[in-house]
Write a protein that binds this DNA or RNA. Sequence first.
RNA 1: GGGCCCGUGGUCUAGGGGUUAUGACGCCGCCCUCACGAGGCGGAGGUCGAGGGUUCGAGUCCCUCCGGGCCCA
Length: 898
Amino acid sequence: MEFKIWILTESGQSIKYFNQITQLKPMIEKEYEAQEVEEKWVKLWKDEMFYFDWNSKKPHYIIDTPPPYPTGSFHIGNTLNWCYIDFIARYKRMKGYEVMFPQGWDCHGLPTEVKVEEIHGISKNDVPREEFRRLCVEFTKKNIERMKRTMRRLGFSIDWSKEYITMYPEYYRKTQISFVRMFNKGLIYRGYHPVVFCPRCQTTIALAEIEYKKGKTKLNYIRFGDGEDSVIIATTRPELIPACVAIAVHPDDERYRHLIGKKVKVPTTDYEVEIIADEDVDPEFGTGIVMICTFGDKQDVKWWKKHNLQLRAVLGKDGRLNELAGKYKGLTTREAREKILEDLAREGRLIKQEEIDQNVGVCWRCKTPVEIIVEDQWFVKVDKENILEAARKIKWVPEHMFSRLESWIEGMEWDWVISRQRIFATPIPVWYCKKCGEIIVAKEEWLPVDPTKDMPKEPCPKCGGTEFEGETDVLDTWMDSSITPLAITGWPDDWKKDDYPTSLRPQGHDIIRTWAFYTILRSLALVGEIPWKEIVINGMVLGEDGRKMSKSLGNIVEPHEVIEKYGADALRQWAASGVVGDDVAFSWKEIIAASRFQQKFWSILRFTLLHVKEKPDESAMELLRDADRWILSKLMKLVREVDEHMENYRFAEALKAIRSFTWYEYADNYLEIVKNRLYSGSDDEKKPALFVLYTVMNVLTRLLAPFTPFLAEECWQRLHERIGEKVESVHLQSYPVADERFIDEEAEKRGELIKEIVSAVRRFKHDRGMALNAPLRRIMIYAPIEVDTRDIAGALNAEVELLKEMPTIELRVKAIKPKFNILGPMFKDKVKAIVKAINGLSDEEKLKFVESDSIEVKVGEEKIELKREWFDIEIEKVVGGEGVEVLETENAVIIVEP
RNA sequence: GGGCCCGUGGUCUAGGGGUUAUGACGCCGCCCUCACGAGGCGGAGGUCGAGGGUUCGAGUCCCUCCGGGCCCA
């Protein structure tokens, strides 16, 4: 490989953080090949670049990264979330922090179980629990690998040595410890709770597993009680009358207010229930009187909890009514419905029936309507006040996201149910004594444990029994993921207390009520502290049509499609384009614009490398011209601005500022202005321009590094390779700091004037149909400040003369524009009249006003003195000259001899 | 039904009391300028969702309505 050797001698490339020598070509290509460059750096960058070191003396910055659910594809919504994290991580790292950007995987859960059943054509109960779990683990591993590839391709600066996987014993041991500790603190208990149940599949199912099917049903009007105090209720579930525990009306319903508090007998039974008031009752539905049963639907559960009603669990797991239903015992719901309606009709209690539309919850699998039954479940106590108070101590970005959590907490009606009747999840480390029924919770040192195959290491403490029944219920997945900030800080074995709370939680607003809420709850319960100092919330990614991405709408875009067409950096720039917290619509236009910027930046690099051949030394500083000082001053202000935006997570603003400086100030103006000097100037003339070229490229690549890590690295390396300097990755450099020596307001004014003059003359050439580099005979400039004309001459291809005095040009006041922000508060409603008076002045009066600094006008009967500085004055210059064109800009008069 | 957010040229968007409303894409015209034609220069295009209110002055603040989005019932 001769080529490689040449590179070695030419540039001495030997960068400790790269896996191999970079193959830089001596000539820079015209086109930026994002694919090629990005794939090269994915291979060259070493993971160690981003390893976090607990012993580092730098301030620590720890990110509680979301562990995604390993579905197998890292989607565009994840991309947005992770881009934000990576912008922050890279920025903080360059700002001198020791950054931890760990990565976890939230493995457990129903979708994987379903997928595994599908792939293997089995039901989870067809194989031993352990075998089923093994299949899930295997499937999940593959998915994780696929997602990791996408994440690496997107250039995320993840510390892969800090990877955690919740389905592995090392992690779920922590989950189990957290369970045990909270149980021992009395924060976890076992109790009755309604659950959704499929009578055909004989299993409880999660709310997420319910499908809703539109259908028709009959609304039955049924009379409860007799005589004066009888009421007519409307129900679609007459078979649940034996489960009726109350009757409810709306508190403001005039028709029924007198009934509140009274009791009424429930038909088909021998007991009475109370008539209560509740605002959730819809007076428009049916008769406006509703019966509450345990349980017809979720609303019943809500009422049951709220009003602390008794429980009449008439429905058994077999889907039949039990002894509480009296003579209807043993009937299925359908049979019971017919029989009860028959009986009620005979008694004259069935007043009428009408057909209505109804959404029935059905089992996603067998489409059988689901029922709500009551079962023993495990709960975590929810201390609403405590959690709210803690959540207020966290900085929410954007702030209004806190109110989502707040309203959620305030509306919470019951504790967190953490038990699931599933398999692929963290086992609940509990047994029941077969002899006395005592609950035996595992000791910490026994963990991790699977109570369905492991047994307690001690006899029952209550009765000494040695036979146990292992808990088959498992934990809600949120029990795994709500301890992530603890897990990444080494809890419980080697907990870095001093690094807690962690610095940042970045996550989507869709899981504020779950992940954010549960994490705060658990952190308080386990260590008594908030989990993070700040939480940055990202929005959802919508399709190009502004609707949520979904298969049925066909508006899904996958990251790999974008990467293949435009590369990861372009996708990352798109991710930066929105406001943090807002939903962001995907946009190919934005991607294309981003990739054009990359090409523009590449062209600038190409131009830079054409001229810059060695590292400019400081002696260039003394030779700087106005144009040079101007762009350097602007550059430093850009650095300040970008830094401020980054500190406040305003990525769009930061990137926009970089892009517009690069393109519209630097490329379109500065480079055009210095071109002539670079091509045909003397060494002393070139020197300062080269200094600028080098400095700007050096600063811009670092500013861009968090956003476009690949492009930035490539340009950074090419620039240094060109000047023969060994450098480490741009991602290990410090973020630019504004060099105050270059901030120079006067130079900026002169630079702006140069820019103004150059573009005015270019516009003039354009209007005349001349080529922009066509020669002009002579240009004379009159301007309020003195300016270096040499670059103007070069840029315009003309001789330039600076006039000391305004040539025979007459002045005329073109416009007097009132500054309303000054006049408004001073003269209130008289402003309009004043403006009218000013506009009514003659040309001479106006000129006199401008020259004398004040004028007196009459408004009605009143005389008002007006100051010049209360107005913006526009002065027009009138020239009598011949054979010249006069161009007037804001700050200069340009006389062109074509 | 509840909570939160958002309606600005054709499309997307900046701006959160001050005159003439930002930029991008698209559109129209001109220029093959030695880094870039996926470029440069110039231009047309908006009664800021509707109605009311506060104010000397309202995309901007308040109220109502209409439309959209997300989350939760």
